[in-house]
């Protein structure tokens, strides 16, 4: 008997709740259903933005800070350089070091790079706070009337200083390992009987 009365009470509660819903939130629906016409045009719907967000590419497992890389394209192709860190854009921050083989602080795509198994411990090296905006060039060239102007702008002082301090830290590290200095100074190339798909780096 007790259980029955409980059931009844629950039902009553539910009915009350329904009524309340109709009087407030659900009332819109009721009126909508009663409408006898439809708008002729569709309501413009807001589109979800499809703008691509560039995610930084995943770093290859073989590339860690201090790895010696071989550059494959561009002006410095064939040069062996040291990987410093990955930037927010996913590009790799590298340097020759400049004092050894002339490759400055530079960004490269990891696609255009061969990672070697040679690694230098650069934990002690303080990497200058470089981000992608560093490498953006001023597109506007200052107009000059003189014919002698070569159009070359000088590198900002901060860049030069960063390169200098990096080199001064990296070069002694490189010199510790025998043959590493001359290795970094030399260019990579294939010779007879060498097939890159069969070689290990």
């Amino acid at each position: 008997m007790v259980s029955k009365s409980r059931d009844v009470r629950r039902k009553l509660k539910e009915q009350a709740a329904k009524k309340q819903a109709q009087s407030t939130g659900m009332s819109d629906k009721v009126t909508k259903a009663k409408r006898k016409w439809y708008p002729a045009d569709d309501k413009p719907r807001k589109r979800t933005s499809r703008r691509k967000v560039q995610k930084p590419s995943k770093l290859r497992a073989s590339i860690t800070p201090g790895t010696v890389l071989i550059l494959l394209s561009g002006r410095f192709r064939g040069k062996r350089v040291i990987f410093l860190k990955q930037l927010a854009s996913g590009l790799l921050l590298i340097t020759g070091p400049f004092a050894l083989n002339g490759v400055p602080l530079r960004r490269v795509n990891q696609r255009y790079v061969i990672a070697t198994t040679t690694k230098i411990d650069i934990q002690s090296v303080e990497i200058p706070s470089v981000d992608d905006s560093w490498f953006k060039k001023n597109k506007k060239k200052p107009k000059s009337d003189e014919m002698t102007d070569t159009g070359k702008s000088k590198l900002p002082e901060s860049f030069l200083n960063a390169q200098k301090s990096l080199d001064s830290q990296l070069v002694p590290l490189v010199k510790q390992v025998p043959f590493l200095k001359s290795y970094l100074c030399s260019r990579f190339s294939l010779s007879y009987g060498q097939f890159p798909h069969e070689m290990r780096f």
Binding site: T116, L180, Y183
Partner: peptide, 14 residues
Amino acid sequence: RRKLGDFDRFKVMI
């Protein structure tokens, strides 16, 4: 020789 990495190959060359 086939197993050598790039740096080792360089040392062999020298």
